[in-house]
């Protein structure tokens, strides 16, 4: 059985070599489809991470006025703790804030060296529970906190958060739409490639049928070709996407750091699913090419 599959594999590779241009074009199509679908998925995945971190509790920063006392700080802390919409309250001193900023912007450490004094204010970091996609709660809490005595300013996502959600929803839809479109295009291109390879061996196939070869025996090398195209195309696409990601994130590292945003690559299981889908494209292409043969 193992020898039979080795034989099929050998014939599949031989066929791919003799139709290398056709298979090459098909492979590139699959790679491009995976890169494009993967790019959309990458953005959608990172956006989903941001959303889920927000769901865990939207962060509001409440800056304290200069010259407030320890008692003021305790009073504000208690007021905030009593609010049911606020899940967590943490005081961040101006020293701690500066240290945190320094560690995030290590590459620009020179900026901090000549500071005459710490320009950052003391602050409270609040976490607000968010239900569904409603950001009204966040705004409500922000307005409430802003009115507390000795609070100078409140910083939170505000209006852009809502817009961001809409963009993410569109991004997800685009990922799904593009993914489906490229899936279909790739399946049809693989189907045509396999069909052409099959027709180029029509005489050989006919002889094999005459000597009693089963259809599975005849078609196995063509299915293997589809699987090889799909699997290697998926791996190639993911590899190119990863290398592009590494290059771009390396260059834009400072920007992401400044945005306090961790733009990560697709999780391993998503990569596996995409390579799996790509392999499925290859198999379905081969299947479709033989279905067409039956219909004819």
């Amino acid at each position: 059985m193992k020898d039979l599959w080795i034989r099929h594999f050998r014939h599949a590779l031989k066929d791919m070599r003799s139709h290398r241009f056709l298979h090459g074009i098909t492979w590139i199509t699959i790679v491009l489809s995976i890169i494009l679908s993967g790019t959309f998925t990458l953005f959608a995945s990172n956006a989903a991470d941001v959303i889920s971190s927000w769901r865990a509790g939207v962060r509001i920063l409440a800056y304290l006025e200069e010259g407030h006392t320890e008692q003021d700080r305790l009073r504000i802390h208690n007021i905030l703790k009593e609010n049911n919409l606020i899940s967590d309250v943490r005081f961040i001193s101006k020293t701690e804030a500066l240290e945190s900023l320094r560690s995030r912007m290590q590459r620009h450490s020179a900026v901090f060296q000549n500071l005459p004094e710490n320009p950052l204010p003391d602050a409270f970091e609040l976490r607000v529970r968010v239900e569904g996609n409603s950001w009204d709660t966040v705004e409500e809490v922000a307005l409430y906190v802003e009115k507390i005595k000795n609070i100078e300013d409140v910083e939170y996502g505000g209006q852009w958060v809502g817009r961001f959600l809409k963009v993410i929803a569109m991004l997800r839809l685009a990922a799904l739409g593009m993914g489906s479109l490229f899936f279909l295009i790739s399946v049809f291109i693989v189907a045509n490639t396999i069909r052409l390879a099959f027709y180029s061996r029509k005489e050989e196939v006919e002889i094999m049928r005459l000597v009693g070869a089963e259809e599975g025996f005849i078609k196995a090398p063509f299915y293997i070709q589809g699987l090889i195209l799909g699997f290697s195309g998926g791996l190639g696409g993911m590899l190119i996407l990863f290398l592009t990601y590494i290059t771009l994130t390396f260059r834009m590292d400072a920007t992401f750091t400044a945005l306090a945003f961790d733009f990560s690559f697709l999780p391993l299981h998503t990569v596996a699913v995409m390579v799996g889908v790509s392999t499925l494209i290859g198999w379905m292409g081969a299947y479709l090419s033989f279905r067409q043969e039956v219909v004819e």
Partner: peptide
């Protein structure tokens, strides 16, 4: 009706391969 791209051995072996011989 021989397969031009296969050797004499492979042409003859085809029947046995199709029959699943070792």
């Amino acid at each position: 009706k021989l397969i031009a791209g296969r050797s004499v051995f492979d042409n003859v072996a085809l029947v046995l391969e199709a029959a699943g011989e070792k």
